[in-house]
């Protein structure tokens, strides 16, 4: 049986949410944090909130974002798990390809499915597509021919992916998962080692 693993990125693989972190460099950390938290909990529509946050963070040159992201820590147990089977793992994120693509390729070596932005003169000029994680998981299942899909996430925009998973894991290693993610999940784990010990049995 072939099992695929789909991971949320921000606050699941990384030990913090990236957009508030990026916002620190332009002194908008508090503002972006409020928007991010409200979005994870489902109080704001992900699509609109994400576009708004991208508009604000678009002031940062894309190359500078790539540098900043390099300093973000990932949870070592989860990184090891992905690197031990990159062909079966996919990062499924609402974040932008131009911001985190190089980082994912370098450190995780697995496929990335993300929102897409247009870059011109080192600036983000448009968000072309905000990822629907449910549709993404359906497409990945067909593309990879997986018999079974395990999805791991924490936020409101992870719920469609968790609902379509054969095994859904709400992950609270960075912050408590939103209520809807917990309710869509078969398992809830709060610790990266527990997550990997659970996944290694699948």
């Amino acid at each position: 049986m072939r099992t695929g693993f789909c991971f949320d990125f921000d606050g699941t693989i990384t030990d913090r949410e990236l957009l508030p972190y990026l916002a620190e460099s332009i002194d908008l950390a508090d503002e972006i944090s409020v928007l991010t938290r409200a979005t994870i909990e489902g109080h704001l529509d992900f699509r609109k909130s994400f576009k708004l946050r991208c508009r604000l963070l678009g002031a940062i040159p894309v190359s500078r974002v790539n540098e900043l992201v390099q300093d973000v820590c990932m949870q070592p147990d989860i990184v090891d798990f992905i690197r031990s089977r990159p062909q079966d793992c996919v990062v499924v994120t609402g974040n932008l390809d131009c911001w985190i693509g190089p980082y994912v390729a370098e450190h995780l070596g697995c496929k990335l499915v993300s929102s897409r932005g247009t870059v011109s003169d080192d600036r983000l000029t448009a968000v072309d597509d905000v990822l629907d994680k449910g549709a993404a998981v359906s497409a990945l299942r067909a593309e990879f021919g997986w018999d079974r899909v395990v999805c791991v996430g924490d936020g409101m925009n992870d719920v469609p992916m968790l609902e379509l998973a054969d095994i859904a894991v709400a992950y609270g290693g960075v912050h408590t998962p939103c209520k809807a993610a917990e309710e869509a999940a078969h398992y809830i784990v709060y610790n990266p080692r527990s997550l990997c010990s659970l996944m290694s049995q699948f």
């Binding site: 917990e182 999940a185 078969h186 809830i188 784990v189 709060y190 527990s194 010990s197």
Partner: peptide, 18 residues
């Protein structure tokens, strides 16, 4: 039940039985 478990330790795997 989860809150009680987490007060003791953070590494418990929660299995939901809805």
């Amino acid at each position: 039940v989860i809150a009680c478990a987490r007060r003791v330790r953070d590494d418990v795997i929660i299995v939901r039985n809805p």
